[in-house]
Design a protein around this nucleic acid. Structure first.
Length: 608
RNA sequence: GCCGUUGUAGCUUAGUGGUAAAGCACGUCAUUGGUAAUGACGAGACCGUGAGUCCGAUCCUCACCAACGGCUCCA
């Protein structure tokens, strides 16, 4: 069965991948009698195929399955299709409830039913195969990759099927290249680099999804937060400080209790009947700061920022490094404003988001996240309010000529949003920045302001985050920079390396000079040889180091060396590239460092 | 939570039904060395946790915990 999306381009690689999915079906049905095949599309790096299997398949069975596939392919001369009647289709797939469900659905939608045949295979399919599989399929350019569970039709209420993933390319070389690239990407993995560079740790005793940041890691996390603070000040967001747990009542009014109770952690007090909850977000509390005194239309927008810890009871299988945690924070902010202020508020925030991501040299895309009108129960508020608020957001993007894609069903429970999406080293997408429009929460908390005409009105609430969650963002940044943090984010910025013991004193003077100027400097005065000291600096991905020996002392000039040849690190950058050397005076060194730190480097971020 | 994989020293890994090996890192001593591995010696692990089978379990079985890759979810 194929799952060809009509938009999909039927390239040769597509045909190969799609044909392989059919081939896998045939092999599995021979090796596992009683196996039922469900869907099996071509994907970016190969294909997958879902099965309902009589017994478990594990990766150890892959060689046997691949061998069978290579046998069967010899018997596939042609791949031909023909249209069939609903009756014929029903009869052919009476044994397979998944196919039956699909063919009934296609028929009811008035779609044509087609069977495709090759060798002994007969499958319900739209087409898009190699015409002569035995001649055209490169049999050494595919490899079964992994096995995973997947719910039938993506619904967790349905039966879990076995999904077998395969890698497939047009040539063996491409396959090998892809596997190598994936290995390389794994070297950038923030979980691996986080350990190697001593940035954060987990402990079985502390619990899963609860990272502890070491001094170096905490430095980076704090630097990310402090940069958010600078940007918040620019936008007029005043930082507030709020408690970590609240009465349940707060979340009942906000609506989170009803919709997200399962994801909230309970706190019990021996002095009160009702449970408390560790807060999974800050917005309800911020409404109460707003509500603490009467507000005039002249006061708006009123803007609060918050970096409080948040707690979410994520399911164990969903946790992942720093990108998905149970305890984390957001660079959260809420603006309460009038309707006529929505546009400028959004534009200002968009501008600052762009500035931040430009500074970090991140690539990103913008998604307009809308509600799913077919599942209104997932959201708060009436369809009219949703239509109106979605239109406002879309118009802002259009007027500012900003490229965006639409994400149906990606909205927050209380309103539509603009999300900034970026990728990790393995190509998985993560939301970072977000700007959300909310007409609902202010109503639920009965927030008001007095308008120019003396009447009480309800403000609009804008929820926003510049980097999303500093922890997640740090994980993505580690991969983005391959651990080669720019100078302003580096826990250690420069290392002073004396060649021999008798150079230690001179080196110490330079160390003190830099330290007095708030440069994060280390002195390598341990009794080790030069090679080892330099190696340590490189392994720790320290941006700069200075070697001090007789030459330097005589000339009064320093030999400054840089981790990345003087270039700012890129996501393609890696350890071990050539370093650059230059001779500078102490004053020049200090000036150069201070300038690079204060500007944070600068080059336009690419909108992809 | 579900499907699959994994868990041996700080790190990376080897290995076995009879309580375990190596490299790096670490410590001591020697080496005063000009840019990715100076030498010698030493210390370091009840083999994720708990139970079971066995004369005996790191190894086999079960349960739990945790990590990784997916699915679902992601305020």
């Amino acid at each position: 069965m194929c799952y060809c999306r009509s938009m999909e381009k039927v390239t040769n690689a597509y045909k190969i991948r799609h044909t392989l999915a059919h081939l896998l079906v045939t092999a599995i049905k021979e090796l596992y009698p009683g196996a039922k095949n469900a869907i099996g599309p071509a994907i970016d790096d190969g294909f997958y195929q879902d099965f309902d299997l009589p017994k478990a398949v594990s990766v150890e069975d892959f060689p046997k399955i691949e061998k069978k596939m290579r046998e069967i392919i010899k018997t596939w001369d042609t791949f031909t299709g023909r249209e069939v009647t609903l009756e014929e289709a029903r009869a052919e797939f009476a044994w397979n409830e998944y196919k039956t469900e699909l063919l009934e659905e296609f028929a009811s939608e008035g779609k044509k039913l087609t069977f495709y045949t090759s060798g002994t295979l007969v499958d319900l399919c739209k087409g898009g195969h190699l015409e002569h599989p035995n001649k055209d399929l490169p049999i050494d350019a595919f490899k079964l990759d992994r096995v995973a569970g997947a719910y039938w039709r993506g619904d967790e209420k349905n039966k879990m099927l076995t999904r077998i993933y395969g890698l497939a390319f047009e040539t063996k070389e491409e396959l090998e290249k892809y596997i190598d690239q994936r290995e390389e990407a794994k070297k950038r993995d923030h979980k691996k680099l986080g350990k190697e560079l001593d940035l954060f740790v987990f402990s079985d005793l502390v619990g899963s999804g609860m990272p502890m940041f070491t001094p170096k890691g905490a430095f980076i996390r704090n630097s990310i937060i402090n940069f958010c603070r600078e940007l918040n000040a620019e936008l007029g967001f005043g930082e507030v400080h709020t408690p970590n747990f609240n009465k349940a009542e707060l979340f009942k009014i906000s609506g989170h209790y009803e919709k997200y109770k399962e994801d909230m952690l309970t706190v019990r007090s021996q002095y009160s009947e009702e449970d408390f909850f560790l807060k999974p977000m800050n917005c309800p509390q911020h409404t109460q700061i707003y509500a603490s005194r009467p507000r005039s239309y002249r006061d708006l927008p009123i803007r609060y920022a918050d970096f409080a810890n948040l707690y979410r009871d994520e399911r164990p299988g969903e946790l992942s490094g720093l990108t998905r945690l149970r305890c984390f924070c957001q660079d959260d902010g809420h603006a309460f404003c009038r309707e006529d202020q929505i546009k400028s508020e959004f534009e200002n925030i968009l501008g600052v988001v762009k500035k931040a991501l430009t500074t970090y040299k991140m690539n990103y895309k913008i998604r307009l996240s809308l509600w799913d009108p077919e599942k209104p129960e997932k959201y708060l508020g009436s369809p009219e309010v949703w239509e109106r608020s979605q239109e406002i957001l879309e118009n802002i993007l259009k007027e500012n000529k900003i490229k965006y894609e639409i994400g149906v069903g990606e909205a927050a429970i209380y309103g539509p949003k603009m999300d900034i999406i970026t990728k990790d080293s393995l190509g998985r997408e993560w939301q970072i920045s977000t700007i959300q429009l909310d007409f609902i929460m202010p109503q639920r908390f009965k927030l008001t302001y007095t308008d120019a005409d003396g009447k009480e009105k309800t403000p609009v609430m804008i929820h926003r985050a510049i980097v999303g969650s500093p922890e997640r963002f740090m994980g993505i940044l580690i991969e983005h920079y391959s651990g080669n943090f720019p100078l302003w984010l580096s826990p250690v910025q420069i290392k002073i390396i004396p060649v021999r013991e008798n150079h230690n004193e001179y080196a110490k003077n330079i160390f003190e000079l830099l330290k007095e100027n708030n440069i994060r400097v280390e002195l390598a005065n341990e009794d080790e040889n030069l090679g080892k000291k330099v190696r340590d600096a490189k392994n720790n991905k320290i941006p700069y180091w200075v070697v001090i020996g007789d030459k330097e002392i005589e000339s009064g000039k320093l030999t400054l060396e840089s981790r990345d040849g003087g270039q700012m690190p890129t996501s393609e950058g890696e350890n071990g590239t050539e370093t650059s050397k230059s001779n500078v005076s102490q004053e020049e060194l200090l000036k150069k460092l201070l300038e690079e730190i204060s500007t944070k480097g600068a080059a336009p971020a690419k909108l992809v």
